[in-house]
């Protein structure tokens, strides 16, 4: 990783960092972000604000993917599957009780009666996604590289098929529309802040170093006393929980969820964000997610005017190829820019 000026001697890195200082600095940044979000809600129209909320959620999803893929060196494409699970679990919980009887006849009595508030619904969505990831991870994380990618790609298909055919619980292919619009840009912003904070805490801890050690050399990590199987499942599941939450939030932002909402295309886009930003780089994931979302949204009018649908996909793919060609390890490698590390207390290392 990139050592910064403060860490060129042993004394510098072994000194305990001042948690208070960096805590205050992080707080200031979060407040500044909140001011920006507030300004947006005042000046932009509703469509643009929703778009910004989606951008924030995308950034958070990219960060969660960089935890499960970038730090650990796994190559999982399973994010959309966990998002779908999280979204449906939350949607079934928050759906208006008056319409549940007709639209979701197979719901058990107690589920049909409740109309949960957003926060518990989202947490439960993330929790169920996490449980599924534990089961799936136990079986699938023995696979390496492309095999894991194929297996998790299969997981997307399985989850979509399940949702499409479990009519009584999910309303099948037509999906659930008219979900309560519980989520606004503040939810999205809060989600991003929490995901970045958790990712940062994992990365700059012994846990994160051990996960990266598994990525760098699994055999040597094992022989240094690191339980690689456990850490791979952990990284995979943390990513899955955060993806489940992200799926639930997205569904309640756009007020609709269908089996195809979170598709393989999304898996591709998220992986592109992580690769362009640099696998393992939190800053990189946020910036790449923002850049790619803005780029594809700004190309939408061009697509419509010139009748060139799919142009944004082409542009994203070209960006990916360009980055892989010029900077194979992404914009920031697996590190963070030193200025960001200073503010949030990366303690010079990692």
């Amino acid at each position: 990783m990139i050592p910064d000026a403060s860490s060129t001697s042993v004394e510098a890195w072994s000194r305990p960092r001042a948690p208070q200082w960096s805590f205050i600095a992080s707080l200031v940044i979060v407040c500044l972000g909140a001011v920006v979000v507030f300004t947006m809600t005042q000046w932009l129209d509703r469509y643009a604000v929703t778009l910004c909320a989606l951008l924030l959620i995308n950034a958070a999803l990219a960060v969660s993917l960089t935890v499960s893929n970038g730090l650990s060196g796994l190559f999982s494409l399973g994010h959309p599957a966990f998002m779908t699970i999280g979204a449906y679990v939350a949607a079934i919980l928050t759906f208006p009780a008056t319409r549940k009887g007709t639209m979701l006849p197979d719901l058990p009595e107690w589920l049909a009666a409740i109309e949960a508030p957003m926060l518990p619904a989202v947490l439960l969505g993330g929790g169920v996604a996490g449980l599924v990831s534990l089961v799936v991870g136990y079986a699938v994380l023995r696979l390496k590289g492309h095999y894991l990618a194929v297996a998790t790609l299969g997981l997307i298909i399985v989850v979509q098929g399940l949702v499409r055919n479990w009519d009584g619980l999910t309303r099948g292919g037509s999906g659930l529309s008219g979900l309560p619009r519980h989520v606004d840009i503040w939810w999205a912003y809060g989600y991003l802040v929490i995901v970045v904070a958790l990712a940062w805490r994992i990365k700059y801890s012994s846990l994160g170093r051990a996960i990266m050690a598994v990525r760098e050399n699994e055999l040597a990590a094992e022989c240094s006393g690191i339980n690689s199987a456990r850490l791979k499942i952990l990284a995979f599941s943390v990513g899955a929980v955060l993806a489940g939450v992200g799926g639930a939030l997205t569904a309640h932002l756009i007020s609709v969820i269908t089996p195809g909402t979170f598709s393989i295309v999304l898996a591709f886009n998220l992986v592109v964000m992580v690769v362009i930003g640099g696998a393992g780089s939190i800053t990189g994931a946020v910036l790449a997610a923002a850049g790619i979302t803005l780029l594809s949204e700004s190309l939408r009018p061009v697509e419509e005017a010139a009748n060139l649908y799919g142009l944004s996909q082409v542009v994203v793919a070209v960006c990916l190829i360009a980055v892989l060609y010029m900077r194979p390890s992404g914009l920031f490698g697996s590190g963070e820019p030193s200025i960001v590390k200073r503010i949030f207390g990366g303690r010079g290392q990692a």
């Binding site: 012994s206 051990a210 050690a213 040597a220 240094s224 690191i226 490698g333 290392q349 990692a350």
Partner: peptide
Amino acid sequence: LFADLTVAENIMCGGHARHA
């Protein structure tokens, strides 16, 4: 070695199992 980690981090990884 864990090539992309620093020397200090490599050595700290050795203590992970006992202290983390």
